[in-house]
Design a protein around this nucleic acid. Structure first.
Lengths: 301, 301
DNA sequence: CTGAAAGCGCTTACAG
DNA sequence: CTGAAAGCGCTTACAG
């Protein structure tokens, strides 16, 4: 009988099931971006874990950080039923996480939290603060007087985790703290920032908020005739797939975004079904990867 | 009254609506990958257009090209209700497109079709053949005797559109046709292929199946001490965001993947609702972008 | 433990 | 044109 049902291509009707039972086995990911390395990798991790648990995965892009637009996207996600994961790495994401109505199952993917964000909601994070600290310390240990910082847009008005890790390393080493250069997410922003920093002869080490920014900085340094790492050292963030193959190859801090996405889903799964394996509070441990783009400062500097 | 309803946070129940009416205002995109530039951009385009039309967007990743696995993913997408877009740039995608049961609303995103793929289903494509033809012709016009080709994995056992465009340009110019080097999707594959080609002194021009591959080839050439474009010219495919900022910056063929995604959704929308604007048969026109990585062959060659 | 009824929140085809 | 009834395909709480 069951075999016959199988044979005839019978399939449980997901919609009716959801209406009758009130649960959906679905997760909607709310994110401001789907193409940058970190975001895309988290999405990939969530999808993998969701697929393994037979959950459907939906995506909603937060195109604007404006309150009304964010609220509309959150509503759409809520309407879809099931749970929500919001990637809160930027203002739009942070607002979306805050706008999810109480009572809805949600988990946030956030930067190192100073204090628990979004009230008592479950969340996962990358230890961006530690990662920035490691990269900055590495550059300082090479003998650089200080390390300049090209920042990705921060998620809140407060200091970002990456910025504060960088700052802490400088402070501990007694190094002067240059003004961070605010930039964007992509290579073009890094290029602009790099051109600006290249004009300053005293700059010998640059930490970039992500690898794409670093790529643009590398290009700017090349254009202005400053050699890397001979005259200037550059380090990135993320260890994107291309970073090992740049010329010079990029020193960076590897972050396990895919694993972070899987953890986010696991947490949500635990919230939605008591039977699901309970995920511990997961933190991805950053790992410094030293390559060609960092070295000692020029001896005559 | 309506205001009061609005006030109380009343919302139409999507699930009940779908059950009762039999339609979902949802699209599921089936793809083998979500992070590579082309795939991610198509997904982004679909999401934009879907959001504008108030459609929910789901994703299903085809982790394996094995028949049973593909069939299972297609079922999941079908179960979700609504329409399906499948990105058929690889064996898994091509099989998934073929496995969608007749009668379900589906559109395929395919390589330049030799003949209409998937029967009489609507589809959109990038003109990969033309793009490869343009890039190859550019390199030949610079004076190279021939152009070597590092290929991405092809979607079928038949010759890919990119390969055949390259071949056609060589043939028309009466240039010898070297054996294509089969590679993967990422920089690591390009690096391996580049190392291999670098051993052959006669190689002066290399066309790569995508920009990530080209990035790896550039690195391999650097490691083996061959200058670009002095000794070897390199061209890519896609015009990914970082390509303009590599050193040397990469000559490539720009493809409008985001627009392609939007077109795919528009087509599907037309199939699902007669009232929706009918999309024309859309083709994205490739555009050659000449940068630093291509130039004349060495004069002594 | 098994089986028939009620109900999830809508749409749609039908009676008034 | 308006309004009450039936039904979408399931689950769940309840009677047997």
């Amino acid at each position: 009988m069951l075999a016959a049902i199988e044979e005839l291509g019978f399939r449980r009707n997901t919609t009716a099931l959801a209406l009758a039972s009130g649960r959906s086995r679905a997760v909607t990911v709310l994110t401001a971006n789907t193409t940058h390395y970190g975001y895309a990798s988290i999405l990939q991790g969530i999808e993998e874990a969701a697929r393994a648990a037979s959950y459907a995965v939906g995506i909603g892009v937060l195109e604007s950080a404006e309150d009304a637009a964010v609220a509309a996207e959150v509503q759409r996600a809520a309407d879809a039923g099931g749970g929500i994961v919001v990637i809160a790495y930027d203002p739009a994401g942070v607002r979306a996480l805050g706008a999810v109505p109480a009572g809805l199952p949600v988990v946030g993917v956030v930067e190192t939290p100073a204090s628990p964000p979004g009230g008592d909601r479950p969340w996962v994070w990358t230890d961006d603060r530690e990662a920035a600290y490691q990269a900055t310390s590495h550059l300082l240990s090479l003998g650089h007087e200080t390390v300049h910082y090209v920042a990705i847009p921060s998620s809140t008005r407060r200091t970002s985790a990456r910025t504060s890790g960088w700052r802490q390393a400088l402070k501990e080493a007694g190094a002067p703290e240059p003004r961070p250069v605010q930039s964007s997410w992509g290579p073009a922003g890094g290029h602009t920032a790099g051109l600006k920093l290249a004009r300053d002869e005293s700059v010998t080490a640059i930490l970039c908020g992500n690898d794409d920014l670093a790529l643009g900085v590398l290009r700017a340094l090349h254009e202005t005739g400053r050699s890397v790492p001979g005259e200037v050292s550059v380090a990135g963030f993320d260890d994107a797939p291309h970073s090992a193959f740049l010329t010079p190859s990029l020193t960076t801090v590897r972050l396990d975004f895919t694993g972070l996405g899987r953890s986010a889903f696991a947490l949500l799964h635990g919230v939605l079904e008591e039977s699901a394996p309970v995920a511990p509070h997961p933190v991805s441990v950053p790992e410094l990867v030293v390559r060609e783009s960092s070295g000692p400062p020029p001896s005559d500097a």
